[in-house]
Structures are given as C-alpha cells and as structure tokens.
Design a protein around this nucleic acid. Structure first.
Lengths: 211, 211
DNA sequence: AGTATAAATCTGACCGGTCGGTCAACAGAG
DNA sequence: CTCTGTTGACCGACCGGTCAGATTTATACT
C-alpha cells in the first residue's frame, strides 16, 4: 500500500511537471505554436511520455489551464484576506489579477488561444465559468459590502460587477496590445476608474503603496 | 489605356473578393484553422490564384484586416453623424461597435488570432493603432463635448476614454465567452454603465429605440 | 474579320517540412 | 522474470508555398 502510494505520488508529480511545462510553453508561444516536443523538452522527458500521461495535446493544455485558474484563485483569496474595507479589497483584487497577468507574461495570449481551439468545447466553457466565478466572483460580495457600509454609492450590483470584470479584461487587453505606458500605469488607472465608478468620485487618490 | 484600366479594375475586384473570402473564413474558423484551400474555395478560385494576388497567407490576412478596420470606421463615423448630443453620440458609438461584432460573428476571434501570429509584426501593430484611433478615437471628442456642455461630470478625459474602450472590449469578450444573456442585454448594460460613469448617474434610463 | 503571337491569368500536382499520435523495443525496480 | 514507465523512430495527414504548363485575353498583322 505504501509502495502503491509512492507510485501514485510519483505519477501525480510527473503530471504536475508536464502541466507546468505546458503552461509556461503556451504562455510564451501560444497554443498552436507549441509542439509536444517543446513541452517534453521543458519537462525533461521524451515526447512519448507526454502522451503516456495525457491522452492528447488538448488534454494537456486544458490541464495546464485548470492549474492556472486554481492558482489565480488562491492568490486572490489570500490577497483579499490581508486587507480591510471594500476599497482596499477591491484594489487588492485588481492588483492580483494584474500581477498574475504580468507574471505569466502572456497570460492572455494563452487565453485567446482557447478560442481558436473551439468555444464549443464543454470543458473549456466550464473552465471559463469557473475562472470568472472563482477568480472574479469575489468582487460581487466586496461591492455588496461596500454599498451596505455606505462607502460605495447605491449602484446596481450586477452592473458594477460586470463593470469591474469587463474593465479589467479590457485594460489588460489594451496593455497587451499597445505596449505604451508601463504596466503599473495601467493597473493604477484601472483601480482609479473602478473606484471612481463605485464611489462616484468621493474617494481621493490614496498614497500608492507600490509594492 | 481603357483596357489597362479595365485590367486594373478587374485585378482590384479579384483582390477584393479574396480579401472578403479571407475575412469571412477567418471570422468563422480562426486564422490558424483556415487554409489557403478554404479561402480559394470560398472565393471561387484555385489555391494557386490566392498566392498569385497575395504573397503569403499572412499578407492575405492582413489585407482582410485592413478591410474590416476601414469598414468599422466608416460605420462609426456615419452613425455618429445621425444623432445629436454627447449621450446619444456615445450610445451610437457603442451600438455600432457591438453591431459590428455581431455581424461578423467572431470578430474577436479573428482579432485574438493576430496575437498568435506575433505582436512583433509592425503592420499588425500599426493596424491595431489605426483601429483604436480611427474607430474608437471619436469617444474622446464626444466626452470632451459632454463635459463642456455640462452633461457629463468633470471626469479625467483620459480615464474616461480608456474606460469606454476597455469596457466595450471587455464586455464583448464576456459576451463572446459566456453566451448567457442576449447580445442586446450586453449592449444595453454596456451603454448604461458607460453613461452612469460619465454622468455620475444623473441620466435616467431612456426609452430604448431597439432598431 | 480572321489569324497569329504574345502576355496575362489561372491551375493543381508537387515539394519540403511540421506535427500529433503510435508503437515496438528498452530499462530498471521489485 | 515481470511489470511499470520511458523512449524516439516512424507514420499518416496536413499545409504553405512553388512552378511548369494550360487557358484565357489582349495585341499585332494581314
């Protein structure tokens, strides 16, 4: 039983390595451009092994995606917990999402590649829903708390939630494309716009704690 | 000379057909998934002909893109001219961009595929800039006019402009992915959020003229 | 007008190369 | 020896791009 457990752990670890390798390769080059060879090389195994652990390239890719979603989710939850109040919590969410995008370089590139694979893919759709609800779902309760405590104006919660998500997405897209203006410029502007919208302009610009 | 002119026109027309064929194919399947064969078939010519008029597949694709950008730009300019006042003009811009996305089905799909091709491509970057400045650049003057006339609150114009663009982008992305809620729902919500932001909530919901 | 000649246009078989996926053979732990 | 895990040569399919030759159109000449 102990041996069996060891094998299980070993296999899990291998899968993990392959998933991470896939993620980083795709983040750098995009789904179509990455070959199984690339993934195998980065993971330090042969091409044959990649398909020993995963059925297809797509399977490997979706695994990598799930891993990423999980990771971002965890980061957001942790970051929110470190600050107090709706304004700071909202800032924290935005900061985390932006930071993640910066870390994984071409986070969005990978994301946009899903589309090419086909939006009809059920697993992809579910993953997308999980991403939105899991990673961005926190904004709704933060907004709710903000309204109840009177910090945010009485805006429609569904509108506000949509606004935050769409704005973050859109601004990252712009940052990705335009490459004019620093990353921090975009993040700061994003925070400002969101809070401006939520408070109606009553929040004065805080001193930035640029970590 | 007349014959020469005819030949010129004929060639232009052929190029036009190929460009449109490319556009629709890519809009349906995405750049990578589309083959020269597909494009040729839709245009009613042979594969060889596509590369007789265009040097490479990428060239063909960028031509299609330019065509699209031009088209959207024209539509926006025309639509803005038909209405009066910052609020209505802003609505018109949003409506046109949304309508265009709906028309060409997977407008964004094509767009996201550029990224895979490589953001280092100069022509792509220029096109992107042209798209933003040409198609979305009108928002800045509309916002300016709105602030001056007192219809919009005194918000930072750069923030406001960024907000509108990012929100439209982001919401279209969400519409594209989630496929829950009708297209009109998204468009209407987008208009509401933008105007809510710009006016600070002083504009009451107008009766919709859903065309 | 009719014919010959030249030029423009078009075609699809073909080439070189790539990639996802297969599989027979191999390795090493138990 | 066996069984799990690993390998990389190999396969079939595909795709962008080429090109020699067919086809159509324009031009020159009688």
């Amino acid at each position: 039983m102990a041996a069996k457990q060891f094998v299980q752990d070993y296999e899990d670890q291998r899968r993990d390595e392959l998933i991470k390798a896939t993620y980083y390769e795709v983040a750098e080059k995009g789904y179509s451009a990455v070959t199984l060879q690339d993934i195998a090389k980065r993971a330090g195994v042969s091409k044959g092994s990649t398909l020993y652990y995963f059925a297809t390239k797509e399977d490997l890719f979706l695994g990598a995606l799930e891993w990423m979603v999980e990771q971002v989710h965890t980061r957001i939850v942790n970051t929110i917990a470190t600050v107090e109040g709706p304004v700071e919590k909202m800032k924290a969410v935005i900061r985390t999402i932006f930071a993640n995008a910066q870390d994984s370089r071409q986070f969005f590139l990978a994301y946009t590649d899903f589309i090419s694979i086909g939006t009809r893919n059920k697993r992809f759709h579910d993953l997308n829903a999980k991403f939105y609800d899991g990673c961005c779902g926190h904004d709704r309760e933060i907004i709710q708390a903000g309204i109840e405590s009177g910090v945010f104006r009485n805006v429609d919660i569904e509108d506000a939630s949509t606004m935050v998500r769409a704005l973050v997405d859109g601004m990252m897209l712009q940052w990705f494309f335009s490459s004019q203006g620093t990353f921090d410029d975009y993040r700061r502007r994003c925070e400002r716009i969101v809070l401006d919208y939520l408070t109606g302009g009553t929040v004065t610009e805080n001193a930035e704690t640029t970590a």
